[in-house]
Design a protein around this nucleic acid. Structure first.
Lengths: 207, 207
DNA sequence: CGCTCTCTTGATAGACTTCAATGTTAGTGG
DNA sequence: CCACTAACATTGAAGTCTATCAAGAGAGCG
């Protein structure tokens, strides 16, 4: 188990990890950088997620993993994981499925970055996070804690931080959400879903 | 085995396929649509690729698969695939790995859509396709056939078709590539890689 | 208290979309 | 062989979206 302060990398692009991490507490993201510092975040992870399962089969990490909040991460050595899979072969299928859902979310995010307007994209993101948190019992009554800065948000939706701020303000003005500090409250779930074009099929949640 | 004309869907979002497809001949893409018709393409596939392996574990398809050129596709029933995996358990790991590389390419494309300039993005795409085709012996001497229209290109990089045309023209003017009709020739591989910020680590090619 | 990080605002420049029109090419049927 | 059509590529102009630069306000922290 590793305890990390906010904004600290858990693993870096180019490394050859010998363990997968499980988020025990806190929020984690994965990102890539361009040479001049431009950053794209392509996933957010909450407790229970395994952000870098792929390192089990892809030796070199092609992206970085970073703690957004102070985080407790469980590190599972690849060797233990492989042993456990040998003992319980059904587990491999579950883990494989987990990485497939991960990829499904990537696809939806590509659609968001490439084809949704910035406002639709943020609305969609809020819907996605609420749906995920709700599914694991971490959110109810249409509100949740979203511990990312507007700079993080900008790097998620692929715009500048100044513009991200204006998008958030525009969304507030719609009245669909209240987003103050690190708290988000959805005022009109049906309206937000319609506005963001949200359909949770791609999350592949099971009953 | 199915034979498909160009522009025909092989599978559609929302379906529950009972087979995975292998591209035998032709080019295939995967995409998602928004309600108003905006389209995002998030992968291109060449012969030998298995574009929808994930359907083995995710029953409902969250995107569509489409033939770009006239295509021959091998359909492998999930049941046969599962049997084969039971007989040769090492196969599961290889297929899993394949889906992980797929996701790695998604990540790189997200970086491209979100953070690269359009010109860098197209240059990067050319590098990626050449690297992939070269790795499977489908391209040599820095040229290859790229059977996509500029409309497809626009839906890959997330811009309008008019703008995609202007980006291609700008790229031609750099002299790094010659792209006429369906033929692409890389005139300066090192220069194109530098311009597009291409580093093939994310393709996870093995010697 | 001073520092840093984040959020916010305004102004200006640049990137990109949209609309509209035209050129080009390949295929189709007479 | 030619007229006709459809798909694709290209161009220009106008307008919208987004980035960049610059500055200031507020909150948290040592």
């Amino acid at each position: 188990v590793r305890t990390l302060p906010a904004r600290q990398d858990i693993a870096r692009e180019g490394e050859r990890p010998d363990a997968c991490c499980v988020v025990v507490d806190g929020w984690v993201c994965r990102y890539k950088l361009l040479e001049d510092g431009r950053r794209q975040i392509f996933s957010l992870h909450v407790p229970g997620d395994t952000p870098d399962l792929q390192s089990l089969h892809l030796p070199v990490l092609d992206h970085s993993v970073c703690a957004i909040t102070p985080t407790i991460a469980g590190m599972i050595p690849h060797e233990s994981l492989r042993e456990t899979i040998r003992a319980f072969p059904e587990l491999a299928e579950l883990l494989w499925r987990d990485t497939l859902v991960d990829a499904g979310i990537f696809r939806e995010w590509m659609l968001g970055i490439g084809r949704r307007s910035s406002e639709e994209h943020v609305a969609h993101l809020i819907c996605e996070l609420y749906a995920k948190l709700h599914a694991i019992g971490q959110a109810s009554s249409l509100q949740f804690t979203l511990p990312i800065t507007q700079i993080d948000l900008a790097d998620i939706i692929g715009v500048s931080d100044v513009h991200a701020n204006r998008i958030v303000q525009a969304l507030r003005r719609t009245g669909l959400i209240v987003w103050e500090g690190r708290q988000v409250e959805i005022k009109d779930w049906a309206g937000l879903k319609r506005f963001g074009g949200f359909d949770q099929t791609y999350l592949h949640l099971r009953a």
